[in-house]
Each structure stands twice: as structure tokens, then as C-alpha cells.
Amino acid sequence: MKVLWARYLQSEAPAGVRHYGYERFCQIVTSHVRANDLTMPISHVPGHTMQVDWAGTRMGLVGRVTRKSTPVSVFVAS
């Protein structure tokens, strides 16, 4: 959703009109998806395929000795 919003922000806004904030943008997109039934279930045989993705915003992992923060991502598989 954040990638879609970033692309939206790069588009030219009509004269005198501001872009929507992220929260309002998400509300509008969600209502459009629901109204037009734009979801698509993924069917698969259990144990045969795996869905993977990176979850959310990167976090920081702080080393106990160095106190250096290293950016990390959460990998999700189901």
C-alpha cells in the first residue's frame, strides 16, 4: 500500500488540490477494493506450495557489545 501511495504522491495534483494523506488514501483504496470485489484468493494444496513476503517496516537490531543498530527485515512464510 505504501508503494502505491508513493506513486500517487508522484502524480500531478490538480491546481489548488492537495494529495490525500496516507491514512485517507488507504481508506479510499480499501473501499474501492471492497465495492468492486477486487480480491483474489490464492488456492493451493496444503504442504505443496509456500507463500513468502517481507513484513512491514524494517526494524533495528542493536548489538549487545557494540551498541550498533543494524536494520533488519522480518521474513514471513506460510
Rank of each mutant, 00 (worst) to 15 (best):
G63I: 03
S69R: 15
V3Y: 01
C26K: 06
V76W: 03
K2V: 04
Y8P: 00
R7C: 00
W54R: 08
S69N: 08
K68D: 05
M50A: 14
P71D: 06
D37T: 10
S31G: 01
A55F: 13
G60K: 13
F25C: 02
G21V: 04
V62W: 06
D37C: 04
L9T: 01
A13L: 02
R67F: 07
P41I: 02
V76I: 14
G47T: 05
T70A: 01
V17C: 12
P41S: 09
V45R: 14
G47Y: 02
G16N: 15
S11D: 07
V29I: 15
V65I: 15
Y8A: 01
W5K: 02
N36D: 13
G21L: 07
V17R: 09
R24F: 04
R7Q: 03
V17F: 08
S43A: 04
V3Q: 10
A6G: 05
G47V: 07
R58K: 10
V17Y: 04
H48G: 07
A77V: 10
L38Q: 14
A55S: 09
A6H: 06
L9Y: 00
N36T: 05
V74D: 01
D37R: 07
V29E: 03
V17M: 12
G56P: 02
H48D: 14
L4D: 05
V17G: 05
G47E: 07
A35W: 01
G56T: 08
V3K: 09
Y20P: 00
M1F: 09
W54Q: 10
V72S: 05
Q10K: 14
V3G: 03
Q51D: 09
P14W: 09
E12W: 09
R67M: 13
V72K: 03
R58W: 04
P14R: 11
K68C: 05
T57M: 04
F75I: 09
P71Q: 09
T66M: 09
A15V: 09
M40S: 11
P14A: 13
P41N: 11
T57K: 14
P46Y: 01
R7W: 02
A6N: 12
R34L: 12
V72E: 00
W54M: 14
